[in-house]
Structures are given as C-alpha cells and as structure tokens.
C-alpha cells in the first residue's frame, strides 16, 4: 500500500511520507477533507517512527541559514526551506498528528508571508454563509471556549489554526486541518471552508464584556503575542510585518474582553456585529492614536 499522501489547504500543499501503511491510512482518514492530488505537493515531509525518542528536557528550536531544527515535547525534526523538505520523528502513531501539525504550521508561518500574501493566525475561525471572523490569542486565551459557545448560525473552521490570505477582493480566511491538541474528536469537523474575513478579535478574558478597536501598532503587538508568528529570522519578520500591515488596511482588529458565556454573540450584535454579519457598513475603523513628543 502507498504510504504517501498529500495535504492541501489555503494554497499550500504537503506530501507526507508515512513510515507504515497503517499510519498512512489513519492519517488519511483523519485529514480526508484535505487530501489532494499528489502532483500538487510543494513540500515533502518525511514522518518517521522513533519509538525510543525521549521527551525533550526543555523545548528548543535552532534556526541557521535556511534550516530549522527543533525538539518540542516528543517531536524532533528539521525543516529545510531551500529544498522544501522536512523530517519529523515521533515515538508512536498516536502522537503523529501533533507532530505533523507542529511541523506544518511552523512551515506555514514562515512561507505564507513570503510566498502567498498570507498569515497563519493562532485563532478560532468562525464562518457564516457569507463571512468569517477570527478570534485570536495565545494558548489559554479562550479560542476553544469561543468554539464551544458558537451559535448555530456559525460554523467552526478550526479552534486553533486558520490562515488569512490577501486578495484583490479583500482578505479571505481559510481553515486548516489542525485543531487544538486537547479538542475532543467529537467536536472536530474537518471540512474545507473559506470566507471573506470581516473582522479579527484579540481575545482577552475579562470580568465584563468590552470591545476596543486597536490602533495599528497595538494590533501588531497583539498579533505578535499570539505565539504562532514567524519572526525567527529577519526576512521572516519583515515579510510578516509587511503582510500584517496590508491586512490591517483591509480588516478591523479589536480587543475583545469576554466572559465565557453565550451572551458573547448578543454582545457582539449590540456592537454592530450581527450574527451572521454580512453588511460591510458595520465595519469599525480604529481611531488614530495620540502621541507623546518624546521618543520611546
């Protein structure tokens, strides 16, 4: 049986070479909605079975020239951006999806700004029939909570990793096959979805509801704090800033103070975000920040 298969999403494609037919079969079942023609693959990832691989004493990643090596949790690997090849070792099939998710999302964070006019967002993506919203934040910010509170009018794209790509028609939000590591499989629905991105919210758990438009530099800092950002090399950081700048010009970004309660949606509706939101008139434009005359 062929052990290779191709994953494709948001204009990215990865040929996965699994170590055994059973691994390949299980992974293909998991990622069925994202399987594609083998000829489409831009990247090749060798997944290797390393039963004796120890847990990392401390997570690390090392970036040199075009290569990155890492040992995170029980996954060890290397990525070569020049040859577009990667290898990741994992001790068993159970942890293979996480190993692939970590490797592929890292590659995506680096190549999306440089090659695809896009960014990987560490976000819960929600889609209506006509629009999408991204709820961004680092681990523990509330992305999974947002996904659990979702009303029937919205579909969860992923509770962990979504991709925004800029286009002449505006930013488009795409889902990925990769959900939160702790999300129960019963809550996961892997389907290809993409919708125009109408707004992004930076999650902030709070004792009261609040919505604050972020000035561009504040929005950039907030996005940088969401963890999955490629700033490991200067060209990566510059590409990320350039694409983020273009995203800000097309998409309002807010800080959302929220309580983990279903009233979230009525609160957003009161703020001009009816669910589903389809009217461009409801966009908010962040005010210009005030400035001090002293360098800081």
């Amino acid at each position: 049986m062929e052990t290779a298969f191709v994953l494709s999403f948001a204009g990215l494609s990865f040929r996965i070479d699994a170590p055994e037919p059973e691994w390949s079969q299980r992974l293909q079942e998991r990622y069925q909605a994202f399987l594609a023609d083998e000829a489409a693959a831009d990247w090749r990832i060798a997944l290797r079975h390393a039963p004796d691989l120890p847990q990392a004493a401390a997570d690390w990643a090392r970036h040199e020239a075009t290569r990155t090596e890492f040992h995170i949790a029980s996954y060890r690997g290397r990525v070569d951006f020049a040859t577009r090849r990667a290898q990741v070792l994992t001790p068993d099939l159970q942890r293979a999806p996480s190993a692939l998710a970590r490797t592929i999302t890292f590659i995506a964070t680096v190549i999306l700004p440089r090659e695809k006019d896009g960014l990987l967002l560490h976000a819960c993506g929600l889609a209506s029939d006509a629009a999408a919203f991204a709820f961004c934040g680092p681990s523990g910010a509330g992305k999974s909570t947002i996904a659990q509170l979702v009303p029937p009018t919205l579909q969860v794209m992923s509770d962990e990793n979504v991709i925004v790509r800029l286009s002449e028609a505006g930013p488009i939000l795409y889902n990925t096959p990769f959900w939160g590591q702790n999300t129960p499989e019963t809550r996961i629905h892997r389907q290809r979805i993409h919708r125009p991105l109408k707004a992004a919210f930076i999650l902030k758990q709070s004792p009261r509801w609040s919505l604050r438009p972020l000035a561009p530099s504040q929005a950039i800092l907030a996005l940088l704090a969401t963890e999955k950002v490629a700033v490991e090399r200067t060209p990566s950081a510059q590409a990320w800033l350039d694409i983020a700048s273009r995203l800000l010009a097309q998409t309002p970004i807010f800080e959302l103070g929220f309580l983990p309660a279903p009233e979230l949606w009525s609160f957003l509706a009161e703020q001009g975000f009816p669910i589903p939101l389809s009217s461009p008139e409801s966009r908010h434009v962040p005010p210009r920040p005030s400035h001090s005359p002293t360098p800081s």
């Binding site: 561009p216 530099s217 950039i220 090399r233 200067t234 510059q238 990320w240 800033l241």
Partner: peptide, 15 residues
Amino acid sequence: TAFRVFEGEAVLISP
C-alpha cells in the same frame, strides 16, 4: 532588525 511604520509608529523586531 525588521521594521514597519504603522500610522507614524514603528514596530521593530529583532530576531
């Protein structure tokens, strides 16, 4: 150092 100026405010990133 990577940088970009957003409405007059520069964001600097030094990997």
